[in-house]
Design a protein around this nucleic acid. Structure first.
Length: 477
RNA sequence: GCCGAGGUGGCAGAAUGGUUAAUGCGACGGACUGCAGAUCCGUUUCCUGGGGGUUCGAUUCCCUCCCUCGGCUCCA
């Protein structure tokens, strides 16, 4: 399999440092506010990465940190009169719930920054000892970028060309504007810890590096996040970790996902164009939203259109899953061994071949979009069977379901709202359908429509076809 | 200004040095239906930002220009 490494700007064959184990680290969020749709894209994508690697036999240890203390959290907590750590805890809980609904279950561990203060202090100490960091008069510790020659390599920046103060004011305690804080001197009333440099709290970048060094080692396989973190965050991570350990590269592969834009622009508080993740989930349902996220190449920018994106995805997703739902319903009612016809010649074999092809496709830098296109092809082939699909026996259906099973396992699609009806319930529906059929036969359409409406209210949709009436549960997501 | 990512049909969005540039949405037509809905099938020929170059052949590789988005010190 190949993965695009943004540090070397090229795709390479992926080989773990310590097979079969794979260390995967993804920059999590700073839960100072509810998560928005953009966050969903990044974390759903890396969920697919972890699922795929596991399917291919790797033992993935997936770590996603939580920056539970920083300037924004402190500021927000002060506004609300609450505690920053508690505020972070609350938003993080909401985030986990949203991820659960989206089918993101691959993360092994969500370390909180404040649980790693000793490790952070240790790493800062190593940097100070090596002369890469200095303590300023105010009790903060800064990383001295000039001491790390390859600084800027990841982002292609030259330190001299940076515009100091373009967005954030230059800190007067720094020797040089590009230096960054790894330890921030304590401010009264804010959480702080004792350290060799005086009381304070960790800077952002060093949280991640201390955590990864502790959990994944000085070097690990995959580091993921969205592109907006390349500079300065990942640049700083490299400087800290490689500077402290003397080992490089920190991550064998740097994976950067494209941003999700809202009507062409990045979501930001100042523009006031934030669509909360929960709102998007409510509006579209988790399945269509997840489908939307991975229905593009992860490195491309994705322009979210509030008017169209979700409804379009819902339509497409419904079409994709149509044959799958029919199979699932048939198996739920008749069992995996239900009697019936054999699969048409070659089709069961084609299902197996498609699964192989899906693995191959995904193994090329996680091309979820191509895989989904192939799945649509499969849905079309099954749809072309028409009502013959409903007459197939259990073993045939199970074999034809294989590509969908793959989609569930790896892409995390088709997992939700399967709403398999119970046997008793389906008997009652069968009785009602039979009664309606008699009413239709004698021309009593008022009675027929009454039965249809009643079933609709009970959560069952009827579809009249050439060889009788089919039904399915109303999907509630 | 510097760095990075992009520019593909009505829209979203893939791919490839070489038949008809995938897939989906939408639209149109048809099948099915008592009606509706759902579903299915078909059609959607003139779509790769502009200009150069390399090549038998470029959407793909190179140069250049234009445009959009992102980053330029605490953004997924």
């Amino acid at each position: 399999m190949t993965i695009y490494d943004s540090r070397t700007r090229a795709s390479r064959l992926f080989q773990p440092l310590h097979p079969p184990r794979v260390g995967l680290y993804v920059c999590g969020l700073t839960p100072y506010a509810p998560a928005h749709v953009g966050h969903g894209r990044t974390f759903v994508f890396f969920d697919v990465v972890a699922r795929a690697l596991r399917r291919w036999g790797y033992r993935v240890f997936y770590v996603q940190n939580v920056t539970n203390l920083d300037d924004k959290l402190i500021a927000r907590a002060a506004e609300e009169g609450s505690d920053p750590l508690a505020l972070a805890e609350r938003h993080f809980g909401d985030y986990r719930h949203a991820m659960e609904r989206l089918g993101v279950r691959s993360v092994n561990y969500y370390p909180f920054a404040t649980d790693y203060v000793p490790e952070i202090i240790g790493q800062i100490g190593a940097l100070v000892d090596r002369g890469l960091a200095y303590r300023s008069e105010d009790g903060s510790v800064y990383y001295e970028v000039a001491k790390f020659p390859s600084y800027g390599e990841l982002s292609g920046q030259k330190v001299e060309k940076l515009r100091p103060g373009a967005r954030v004011e230059v800190d007067p305690h720094k020797r040089s504007p590009e230096d960054f804080a790894i330890w921030k001197a304590a401010t009264p009333g804010e959480p702080s810890w004792e350290s060799p440099w005086g009381p304070g709290r960790p800077g952002w970048h060093v949280e991640d590096t201390a955590i990864t060094e502790h959990l994944l080692g000085a070097r690990y396989d995959l580091h993921g996040a969205a592109v907006d973190l390349i500079f300065p965050h990942h640049e700083a991570e490299i400087a800290i970790a490689e500077g402290a350990s003397g080992l490089a590269p920190l991550a064998a592969f740097w994976m950067h996902g494209g941003l999700l834009l809202l009507s062409g622009e990045k979501m930001s508080k100042s523009l006031g164009n934030i669509l909360p993740l929960d709102t998007a989930i409510e509006r579209a349902g988790p399945g269509p939203l997840r489908f939307y996220y991975i229905n593009s190449q992860y490195r491309s920018p994705l322009d979210f259109d509030p008017e169209k994106s979700l409804s379009e995805s819902a339509e497409a997703y419904a079409r994709l899953r149509q044959p799958f739902d029919r199979i699932q319903q048939a198996l739920a009612l008749g069992g995996d061994d239900r009697p019936g016809e054999e699969a048409p010649a070659g089709l069961a074999e084609a299902a197996g071949e498609l699964v192989d092809q899906l693995d191959t496709t995904l193994a090329e830098d996680f091309n979820t979009r191509e895989a989904i296109a192939s799945l649509f092809g499969w849905s079309r082939r099954l749809s072309e069977l028409g009502e013959r699909l409903d007459r197939l026996g259990g073993p045939a259906l199970v074999r034809l379901r294989a590509p969908y099973d793959w989609a569930r396992e790896v892409l995390g699609l088709l997992e939700e709202g399967a709403a398999a009806p119970s046997g008793n319930w389906s008997k009652m529906v069968g009785v009602a359908i039979a009664a309606r059929a008699r009413a239709r036969a004698r021309g009593d359409f008022a009675e027929a429509d009454r039965i249809r409406d009643e079933l609709q209210r009970a959560g069952v949709v009827l579809e009249d076809g050439t060889s009788g009436t089919r039904w399915k549960p109303v999907r509630t997501e």
